[in-house]
Amino acid sequence: MLKKLLKKDLTATSRLFVPMLLVYVTASLIAKGLLELFISAEPETSGGGAISLLFILSAMYAAMFILYLFACILMTVIFIIYDFYKTMIKEESYLTHTLPVSSKQLLNSKMMIAFFWQCVTMLVTIVSVLMFMAGHINVEQIKEFFAPVFREIPHSYLILSAVSTVLSLICGTLTFFASMAIGHLNGKHPLITSIGVYTGIRIVMNVSSAVFTVFFFYNKLKYTISSASYANRHVTANIYVNYGNYIWNILSCLCTAALIVFFYWVTQYIFAKKINVE
């Protein structure tokens, strides 16, 4: 049944995401074209005025392109929320919640499709930026620039950072889902309630994160300062700083994972035991 749900949700969301991404790819190609045109234009034959106009147009287009890049990222989130709200809470929920599937399967499908489109948007963005830079950036220069980074930072740390990014994406999506699930319990004003719940959750999460960060790094700084009194203070401090960041990352991942489990459970429980399609 999950495969069927995935097919259904993918079909429904494709009509939102595919046009957005196609426009983005087209805009990227136009941006690239304008850039190449500007770079290849010869001032002697074209005249200074034409170059200035081309420069202005290219600069304007580049600004719009960057805005559209951020708009794409924002629209990805909006489309995910819109699809969930429409199919799980509004009129289409009559179809969704009468399908012979469990609430867990419904939620798993929504999460997987959301994650899929977030990854696709990220990939298209990266490819677009690389395409934009292609032909003007020396690959060897890039390798030389990043070499110290990869030399000094352990691979495990990079993997941990990647895991942290993935967990954050999933947690972000589930925060929206859980907020809407709680909001839908208020049959009269589900949207406003969902917004209020989301705002409340974010405030609590941000305050907790800030308190924990201050506590953690205060203790890290204390240790760093106190360890400076020893003869091999630089080595000790460096080791602690590196391990400190490691520990910080691991703790962050664990907290995010715990939040994922919590928000998943809340959303699934509400739709399984407290559903209120009015």
Partner: peptide
């Protein structure tokens, strides 16, 4: 009420619920 009963029940709501 659950997935099994939903496979046995055919429901016609009083509103339009299709996309």
């Amino acid at each position: 009420i659950g997935p099994l009963t939903k496979s046995k029940v055919s429901y016609l709501p009083d509103k339009d619920y299709l996309s």
